[in-house]
Design a binder for these strands. Structure first.
Length: 285
DNA sequence: AACTACTCCTGGAGGC
DNA sequence: TGCCTCCAGGAGTAGT
């Protein structure tokens, strides 16, 4: 799925196009999209005005009038598109395929939210792993609390010292496994975990407890640098099949068999907990 | 408690 | 062309 940079970029794009609009109709085409988390029926959205759009971890929170919150998690293949009444795209983001300018709705469009100005918000998800739910604000907080999410990577409360302390509590798992664990730190997915480890020069398989203080510092800085680059220069560029795109970002993920940007050695792929790790054996030790 | 394996789905790419 | 296998950016749950 969209990881932190994709969700945050989408949030920023939706703020000016969605805020202040009032929901006039809702069409839920795939009921299970809204059953996993429970909450109110989709129709509860009708009549609500969009007050604010927030993000926690990889989850979008649409704060509504009437004390309600719409939670959305795009998981692996979810996508949101806000289209004007004439069909033009106002904002779109999430998984890069299908193309953001594809005709909507299509067979993987599972939720359509109509706004009073005639615009529509479409949630599409080829793999149907995404989730959405409408809660009272209090229930939304309870739902988030139940997820036991770790700290945000850019939160001031996550200092290098607290990062090291959290690592010290989980010494056994491979460091890559820990980076993907949302209770350890939120926002990283497979792409940016691979990128952070690559930039830090740390092998994904290293048990977390074997990292030196110096390596921990490099990793902490690399996590923020990689996410910051995605937020400021644009999210990682991936082709349809998950391979790296034309841009030099990502620099490791999806580049098996291609030369490392740093040393020229061939990037290799290995599997860890069922997820692909792309790494340079020379640079990452 | 900590850690791992399995599971929910669809569709595109590549081998034969 | 068709069929097969593998692969894809997540995370909840059940088992050891």
């Amino acid at each position: 799925m969209p990881e932190l940079p994709e969700v945050e970029t989408l949030r920023r794009d939706l703020v000016p196009t969605l805020t202040g609009r009032t929901i006039t109709e809702v069409e839920l085409r795939l009921p299970k999209l809204m059953t996993a988390w429970g909450g109110l029926p989709a129709e509860a959205l009708v009549g609500c005005r969009v007050e604010r759009i927030e993000r926690r971890a990889k989850i979008l929170l649409v704060r509504l009038s009437g004390g309600l919150t719409l939670l959305m998690h795009l998981k692996l293949s979810g996508q949101l598109a806000h289209r004007a009444a004439d069909g033009s795209t106002l904002a779109a983001g999430g998984h890069p395929t299908p193309a953001f300018d594809a005709p909507l709705p299509h067979k993987s469009t599972h939720l359509i939210v109509g706004l009073h100005d005639g615009s529509r918000l479409y949630l599409t998800d080829i793999r149907q792993f995404g989730r959405a739910a409408v809660f009272t604000d209090a229930d939304a907080e309870a739902r988030l609390a139940a997820m036991k999410l770790g700290p945000e990577p850019f939160d001031a409360s996550l200092s290098l010292d607290t990062f090291r302390a959290r690592l010290a509590r989980r010494p056994k798992p491979p460091i890559k496994t820990l980076l993907l664990d949302q209770s350890f730190v939120v926002g990283l997915g497979n792409i940016y975990a691979n990128e952070a480890l690559g930039e830090a020069g740390i092998a994904p398989t290293r048990p977390a407890g074997t990292l030196s203080p110096e390596e921990t510092g490099r990793l902490f800085a690399a996590i923020r640098a990689v996410l910051e680059r995605a937020l400021t220069e644009g999210v990682a560029d991936l082709a349809r099949n998950g391979a790296a795109g034309d841009r030099d970002f990502p620099r490791f993920h999806g580049r098996a068999g291609l030369p490392c940007y740093v040393c020229g050695a061939m990037i290799e792929r290995l599997k860890l907990n069922g997820r692909s790790c792309y790494h340079c054996r020379t640079c990452q030790v």
